[in-house]
């Protein structure tokens, strides 16, 4: 690991100033960052440890729920209101990593985790995300974990997490404190970025920005599911995942909020997919049409071609389970 200065945060404003300096990075749980520092993928000049900041509360806010940036994955998944009213979030968190990692991993850190593309994590390989302009090892290489939606000719990496997929389905908002101290809120669905020509930028945080929390809207009920397909039954990243918040009335969809993991550089939310289901009676033919829309621009890179039919089947299986249609 390269040497760095270690600074314990002493107040949000000071931490924001410290984070504005070139080469400074925030650390919270550290389960991703320290791993990447050992690999010398990340070589921060300074680490600003945010843990002393009082940002781990989970509390009612209006009719919804506010989750502090430093709340651990475990605390969130174990929270009574999350388990009762936002079960898709608890299920997605529990489907990821291990208890040891979830005990350390935080809300904000989880949102900011880097891709697990093995060309990104191997400093001997070209990677436009790690080293802009060096090329992409994955596009011409073995691209098994990689994206099939929203890719660019610069980068086909995926956002690897589970929790954020559920938060996209739930239409969470993210709160950010800027380096001028001003707070702003944006839909989480607009937080992560597609790679485009700037794959080294994962999200819409600016230098000195600090995520302070995530808010969930009032509970919407319905049937909530998180289906994760992976190569072993525990402790593996998703090959494809679907977070679904489904409601029905008189045998027809009244709500179908769907988000997809492991298909793109960000959790994938395509409002058209849910909208085409509203008012319709669930059927395998309908689910197939929803998958057609979801995947109309999908493109594989050889080793990940399987993800396109897998996404189709995972969507159908999730909707069958939620609606009682027989697969």
């Amino acid at each position: 690991m390269k040497p760095f200065d270690y600074i314990r945060a002493d107040g949000l404003d000071l931490a924001a100033q410290q984070l504005s300096h070139n080469g400074a990075m925030a650390i919270a749980g550290g389960t991703n960052l320290i791993d990447l520092m050992k690999l010398q993928v990340e070589t921060p000049a300074a680490l600003i440890d945010l843990n002393p900041l009082p940002m781990n509360q989970i509390a009612n806010e209006g009719d919804g729920l506010r989750i502090g940036a430093l709340a651990s994955n475990t605390a969130i998944a174990n929270h009574a209101k999350v388990r009762a009213d936002y079960p898709v979030l608890a299920k997605a968190i529990l489907a990821g990593a291990t208890q040891q990692l979830r005990n350390k991993a935080t809300m904000a850190g989880n949102l900011c985790q880097r891709t697990r593309c093995y060309y990104f994590t191997n400093i001997d390989q070209p990677c436009n995300k790690r080293e802009p302009g060096s090329g992409c090892g994955a596009i011409e290489g073995i691209a098994k974990l990689h994206g099939v939606l929203g890719t660019s000719n610069q980068c086909i990496a995926t956002y690897p997490g589970d929790m954020a997929v559920a938060l996209y389905a739930l239409d969470a908002q993210i709160e950010i404190s800027g380096n001028d101290g001003a707070a702003r809120t944006m839909p989480l669905r607009e937080f992560h970025r597609l790679p485009g020509e700037t794959p080294h930028i994962d999200n819409n945080l600016d230098a000195g920005d600090i995520i302070t929390g995530v808010t969930l809207p009032a509970p919407v009920g319905g049937t909530q599911a998180y289906r994760k397909v992976r190569e072993r039954s525990s402790y593996a990243f998703a090959l494809c995942s679907v977070a679904a918040v489904i409601a029905m009335a008189d045998g027809r969809f009244t709500r179908a909020d769907l988000a997809f993991g492991a298909l793109a550089h960000k959790p994938w939310y395509d409002h058209r997919v849910g909208e085409m289901l509203i008012g319709e009676k669930p059927s395998l033919a309908l689910f197939d049409k929803a998958a057609d829309l979801l995947l109309e621009d999908a493109r594989g890179f050889g080793a990940n071609d399987f993800k396109i039919p897998l996404a189709r089947r995972t969507l159908a299986a999730t909707l069958c389970e939620a609606t009682g249609v027989e697969a």
């Binding site: 270690y6 650390i27 749980g29 550290g30 389960t31 320290i34 791993d35 440890d49 843990n51 475990t74 208890q99 040891q100 990692l101 005990n103 350390k104």
Partner: peptide, 12 residues
Amino acid sequence: ERINSCLTLAVM
């Protein structure tokens, strides 16, 4: 709480 002690810094 159980954690992976390899993925955290002693100073934290």
